[in-house]
Amino acid sequence: MKRIQFLLALTVTLILAGFAQAKDIELLNVSYDPTREFYAEFNAAFARHWKTTHGDTVQIKQSHGGSGRQARSVIDGLAADIVTLALAGDIDAIHDNAKLIPKDWQKRLPLNSSPYTSTIVFLVRKGNPLKIKDWDDLVKPGVSIITPNPKTSGGARWNYLAAWEFARRKYGSDGAAKEFVQKVYRNVPVLDSGARGSTTTFVQRAIGDVFLSWENEAFLAVKEFGAGSFEIVVPSLSILAEPPVTVVDKVVKKKGTEAIARAYLEYLYSEEGQDLAGKHFYRPTSPAAAAKYGPQFVKVELFTIEQAFGGWARAQVEHFADGATFDQIYLKQ
């Protein structure tokens, strides 16, 4: 019996110890897949900045996964002070389903709340054996394409819309675009739930001939595995991906972390934040960092989602909601 009492006491102590640790200022940044390396470095930079300007120690915790899935977790109660997701549609969902943020969240920070941008490029194996140059080449028979699932991954939705817009411009109609995108997905052997899962599928499991990837993720893969193994192919047209950020109002009000959470996001726009974004292959928006890191990116014609699809709210309903075009083309196969 003594032993049981001891174990009980031990358990209770451990649990209490777990609670007692959470005393410093702690922020949780719920983000999407390919931002891991960037935020790991940015968090350290912000913590230093906050320490020197305010004297407080701040610890920023990170959580990463497919953008849609992360939004779902926040809706279900994951207490994120900050969300930095792959697209505005996923943050809209946090407003629509849980009312944790106001409807006009995207107007609260400059540049549509997107401190850095990116785009979609192709990653192919060394020497580009299948001579993939542009979106057309993806629908050729025998080309195996890796892209994550648009239902759960933000990057995958940018991929999908970029392919759609390319085909619409080239073949002239939405009907033709749908047919084209269907052919693209016919060549996809695995749909991972997030961008990083697809990267490992393509890079480490060596499945597929071409990987439709975030530009920063493609650069990272080339950097990690050496320029000898992979090549980046930039198509003739791609989409300007604007991964937005916001404070989760209800959570920060409750935790009393509103001021520091806002400062964290504003720091993304600072020169140091912009410089780190460029270093991790995001396209910085500040003129200085854009000039410094501009040369590493290939010039490509970019269209915005507002121009081509009338914004995320509409694109979401037309293409990714239940029964919308993605379901139509994918379930029919």
């Binding site: 891991r36 915790k61 990170q62 959580s63 990463h64 490992t200 990690e224």
Partner: peptide, 22 residues
């Protein structure tokens, strides 16, 4: 779990994270 690093990751989840980070 919510995959909060240093807080709600168990060993199997941590293995997945490390693997995904190359």
């Amino acid at each position: 779990s919510g995959h909060i690093r240093g807080e709600t990751n168990t060993m199997p989840l941590h293995v997945e994270i490390l693997h995904n980070e190359f």
